[in-house]
Amino acid sequence: MAAVLTPKQAGQLLRDMEIYNGSPVTREALLLSALTFQRPGEIRQMEWAELDFDNALWTIPAVKMKRTKQAKMSGRPHYVPLSPQAVKSLQRLKPLTGHHKYVFPSLLGEGRRMSENTVNTALRRMGYDNETMTAHGFRAMARTLIVENLNVAPDVIEAQLAHGKSGPLGMAYDRAEFMTQRRKMMNEWADYLDKLRQGADVVPLRA
């Protein structure tokens, strides 16, 4: 999937998102795509009932994950630690969509979620064509920039991306797997995005 993969490009994308003049709900969908780097379908299906603000955690039921049919029915949820920036984004959304089931409801009727084309259409309006950036590209952007700039172990990133494991463990996710490291990573990632958006030095941050 097309994605911006350099700090300079990511900083410009974030600035373009900040001044996006479309729906404020779509703007927050763009931001949370960057902050959480979950799959576009998972973000569109996010429900208020899945969010634990006290513990800054988003619990995605197994049935919503990209898994085998058996894993969807019997697998464990995927846990997404939320950075303070992600929590603030959701708090901005609460007055707008908190009375709906979905965090990102459709404009076409109650009980429906945001269209799969909404985020991609917003990117096109900002000048990013299909060969430059896509909704799914936020995952590749995060995977690349975190590895290159934040000195995070690949296994921690893969766990956050909910990529399937190889070997006998398969999709048997442990609720606490890398959770401490993942929470630290998500906070550092959000802070790094803030710096890029503000035009800060984009020299890699490796220790």
Results as ranks from 00 to 15, higher is better:
G167K: 07
I146Y: 00
R183F: 12
R113Y: 13
M141D: 00
K165F: 11
A162D: 13
D155R: 02
T180I: 15
W189A: 10
I146G: 00
T132S: 10
R175G: 07
A135S: 15
R183N: 11
G109A: 13
S115V: 10
M179W: 14
A176V: 06
S115L: 08
M186F: 12
P154N: 08
N120K: 06
Q160S: 12
P154T: 10
M179Q: 14
H136E: 07
N151M: 01
A142S: 04
N151W: 01
M114E: 03
R113H: 15
V147F: 01
R183P: 08
A140H: 05
R139Q: 02
E110D: 14
I157Y: 00
M114D: 04
R143Q: 05
G111F: 14
H163N: 12
T180D: 15
A153M: 04
I157M: 08
T134P: 02
M171Q: 13
L161F: 07
G137I: 01
E148D: 10
M133E: 08
V147R: 08
G170C: 09
T144H: 01
R182G: 12
R143W: 00
F138T: 07
V119Q: 05
G109H: 09
V147S: 12
L108Y: 09
R183K: 15
A122V: 11
A159V: 11
G111R: 14
A172D: 03
R183V: 14
E148Q: 11
L150V: 04
A172R: 09
E188W: 01
K165Y: 10
Q160D: 03
L108I: 08
L123D: 05
T180S: 15
H136V: 05
A159C: 07
E116R: 12
N149T: 09
A142N: 01
D174G: 11
L161Y: 05
T134Q: 02
N187L: 11
G167L: 09
T121R: 14
M179T: 14
F178W: 14
L161R: 07
L145N: 02
M185D: 08
T180V: 15
E177C: 11
N117E: 14
M126W: 03
L108A: 13
V147W: 00
R124C: 06
R125L: 13
E177H: 10
L161P: 04
Y128D: 03
P154S: 09
R124H: 13
N151F: 01
V119R: 04
T180L: 14
W189R: 08
A172V: 14
